[in-house]
C-alpha cells in the first residue's frame, strides 16, 4: 500500500464520515436543548432526495444543498410543532418522521423521475472534480495529502463542527440552549423563553441533518437510491452519544465510525484477515456506543432534561 493508496483511503473514509457527522451535529444541537430527535434518519432521507432534485433540475449542487437545508428546516419545524408546541412524545414524533420519509420519498421518486430504486445520475455534484476544494500545497505531504482534493461538503462538516462548538460553549445563546436541556425550569426563572430556544435548536439541527442527507446524494454519491440513508442517521445518533453530546466528540466518533464503514474495503485492498466477517465490522459503532453508555469505556451521560416535554408553570 503506497502513499497514494493511503491518501485515497483516507479521503474515502472522510466521505463516509461527513453524513454521519452532520447527523450527529443535528443530535448534539437538538438534544443539548432537551429535544430528542429520533427522526433524524428520516430528515436525512428528505434531505437526500430534495438535495438531488435541486441539483438535478438546476444542474448545480449549490441549489441542491439549499433545497436540502430548506426541507430539513421544514421537517424540523414539524417535529418542533409536535414536541414543543403540543408537548407530544418526542420518540413517537421521531418515529412518525422516519416512517413518513420511507413512504413519501419512494412515492416522490416514482412521481418525479418515474423510476423505482434509483434516481438518474448527476453530472454536477460535489464529488466531481470541478466542485472539489483544491489545496495543491498539501499534495506532497504524506497523510495530509488526503486533504488536498476533498469534496466541499467534507470541509463544510469540519467548519460546522467548529461553529457548533463556538455556539454552544462561547456564546450567550449556547449557554441558554444548554440550560434548556439541563434545567428548563431554571431557564424560565432567568427569563429565557424555553420553547423559543428549543424551536431554534430543533429547526437549526434539522437543517444540519438535511445537509447530511444532501451530502449522501450529491457528495458521497451522485444520485439518490431508495435504500438511503440506510441507517446513517442512526449511526449519527450513536456518534452523538459516543461523543458525549459535544461537537468535537461527535466529530471524533464520526471519524471512528466512518473508518468502521470502510474497514471492509481496506481489508479487501490489503488482504489482511480475509476471513473477517463483514457483519462484525458493521456492528462496531453500535457495540461501542452501548459500551460507553453502560460505562464500560468511560461513561456518557445525557443532558438532564433530554427528552422531557417542558410544561411551563407546572410544579
Amino acid at each position: 500500500m503506497n502513499i497514494t493508496q493511503i491518501n485515497l483511503t483516507i479521503a474515502q473514509m472522510l466521505d463516509y464520515t461527513t453524513p454521519i457527522l452532520f447527523a450527529a451535529l443535528c443530535g448534539v444541537l437538538s438534544e443539548n436543548a432537551g429535544v430528542v430527535n429520533i427522526g433524524l434518519d428520516g430528515i436525512m432521507r428528505f434531505g437526500a432526495f430534495f438535495g438531488l432534485v435541486g441539483a438535478f433540475f438546476s444542474h448545480s449542487p449549490w441549489i441542491g444543498l439549499l433545497l436540502g437545508i430548506a426541507i430539513g428546516c421544514l421537517v424540523g419545524a414539524l417535529h418542533a410543532f409536535i414536541t414543543i408546541r403540543w408537548n407530544g412524545d418526542q420518540t413517537v414524533a421521531g418515529t412518525a418522521v422516519n416512517v413518513i420519509a420511507v413512504g413519501l420519498m419512494t412515492y416522490l421518486l416514482e412521481f418525479v423521475f418515474s423510476t423505482t430504486g434509483y434516481s438518474p445520475q448527476l453530472q454536477n455534484y460535489f464529488g466531481a472534480q470541478a466542485y472539489r476544494v483544491h489545496l495543491p500545497f498539501l499534495a506532497k505531504i504524506p497523510l495530509l495529502g488526503a486533504f488536498s482534493n476533498l469534496s466541499f461538503m467534507i470541509w463544510l462538516g469540519f467548519i460546522c463542527t467548529v461553529l457548533m462548538h463556538v455556539l454552544l460553549y462561547h456564546t450567550v445563546l449556547g449557554l441558554r440552549i444548554r440550560t434548556c436541556g439541563e434545567n428548563p425550569k431554571a431557564a424560565t426563572t432567568l427569563g429565557i423563553n424555553v420553547s423559543r430556544v428549543r424551536w431554534f435548536a430543533v429547526v437549526a439541527g434539522a437543517a444540519l441533518a438535511g445537509v447530511g442527507g444532501a451530502a449522501l446524494s450529491i457528495s458521497s454519491f451522485s444520485g439518490f437510491s431508495d435504500s438511503m440513508p440506510n441507517g446513517v442517521g442512526f449511526i449519527g445518533l450513536a456518534a452523538m452519544i459516543f461523543g458525549k453530546w459535544t461537537p468535537f466528540g461527535a466529530l471524533g466518533a464520526a471519524l471512528l465510525f466512518g473508518t468502521g464503514q470502510i474497514v471492509q474495503s481496506i481489508i479487501a485492498v490489503t488482504g489482511i484477515a480475509p476471513k473477517l466477517a463483514p457483519g462484525l465490522t458493521l456492528i462496531l459503532p453500535y457495540v461501542l456506543t452501548l459500551a460507553v453508555l453502560a460505562g464500560f469505556v468511560g461513561r456518557s451521560i445525557a443532558p438532564a432534561a433530554d427528552g422531557l416535554p417542558y410544561y411551563k408553570e407546572q410544579r
Binding site: 414539524l78 409536535i82 414536541t83 408546541r85 403540543w86 408537548n87 407530544g88 412524545d89 413517537v92 414524533a93 418515529t95 412518525a96 418522521v97 422516519n98 416512517v99 413518513i100 420519509a101 420511507v102 413512504g103 413519501l104 419512494t106 412515492y107 421518486l109 416514482e110 423505482t116
Partner: peptide
C-alpha cells in the same frame, strides 16, 4: 395506478404523527 406500495407507509406515518399530536 403507478403508486408505489410504500404508499401505506405515508398513511401509517401520518397517523402516528397525529397520535403524537394527541394533546392537540
Amino acid at each position: 395506478a403507478n403508486i408505489p406500495k410504500t404508499f401505506s407507509n405515508i398513511i401509517e406515518g401520518v397517523t402516528v404523527g397525529f397520535i403524537a399530536l394527541q394533546v392537540a
